[in-house]
Amino acid sequence: MKPIGVILAGGQATRMGGGDKGLLPLKGARVLDHVIARLRPQVGAMALNANGDAGRFDLGLPVIPDSIPGFAGPLAGVLAGMDWAAGQGAESIVTVAADTPFFPTDLVARLSAEGSGIPVLAATKGEAQTKSKSKSGLIRHPTFGLWPVALRDDLRAALNEGLKKVVLWTDKHGGREAVFPDENAFFNINTPEDLIRAEGL
């Protein structure tokens, strides 16, 4: 059974001046259209994690809000996806970011190859100031991961206790990394300048 795909779009986009980065135009479509096209063949079903008025999205996908109040970060979106997937009878979800249109077309296969029943994060080699590095020096991309639905109550408890950092929770559960060769694959659009660069990519 393929994992369920959950697109994380619950952030506040402060560096872009607010709004939904996924709805920005990119090469004749919206950023989210590119994300959906890459994810759809890799998963069994899809949902969008977003807060606020769900009617602003016309994507033909279920829109699920965070269940933890106050913009608790990407893990709140992961939990919302887990809860929704549990109702679908799924054992795991794969999350991708709504502002990252170039992620690998074999993302799910490579995450799944690292094991089941544990969280698996996408990672690349290289230098970056804003990404989370593992002990091995890999740059982890914590919005791109495979998440076992069975861990949802543990995640809920951790978030209610104030947890924000993704890797603190994944490391606690024996999380692993799937290493991808192209760091540009996880290029995300945070600023107007990033959107211009994405047009070039």
Rank of each mutant, 00 (worst) to 15 (best):
L39D: 02
D153V: 12
P104N: 12
L195A: 02
L155P: 03
V6C: 13
A37Y: 11
G52Y: 06
T191K: 08
D153K: 14
G19N: 03
G10L: 00
W84V: 04
V120I: 14
S134G: 15
M16V: 06
A157F: 09
L23I: 08
W147H: 04
D83I: 10
A9C: 07
R140G: 05
N160W: 00
D83K: 10
R176L: 14
L146W: 15
P25R: 07
S132Y: 15
I189F: 05
I196E: 15
G117W: 00
D33E: 12
V78D: 04
L163M: 08
P181I: 05
L61K: 06
K131Y: 12
Q12V: 12
F187W: 10
L75I: 00
F71C: 11
L26N: 09
G28R: 09
A76E: 01
D153N: 15
G117D: 01
G117K: 01
G11Y: 00
R110P: 11
W169L: 05
A123M: 07
G115S: 08
A97N: 15
G200C: 00
D99S: 14
M82N: 02
Q88H: 11
K2L: 14
E183V: 11
E193S: 10
E114W: 05
V31I: 15
P74S: 05
G89H: 07
T191L: 07
N160D: 11
W147A: 04
I189H: 01
V167F: 15
D182W: 14
L121W: 01
N49K: 00
A97C: 12
L146K: 14
P25I: 06
A50W: 02
E193I: 13
P69Y: 00
Q129R: 12
F102D: 02
Q88Y: 07
S132P: 00
A109P: 02
G137C: 04
A45Q: 10
A157N: 07
A113L: 10
P148R: 06
K125H: 13
G200M: 01
V94T: 03
F57R: 02
H34D: 06
N190K: 11
F71Y: 14
R140T: 08
A76P: 03
F102S: 01
A97F: 12
G87N: 06
L32G: 02
D182L: 15
K131N: 13
D182P: 06
I118D: 11
V31N: 01
R197T: 09
L59R: 02
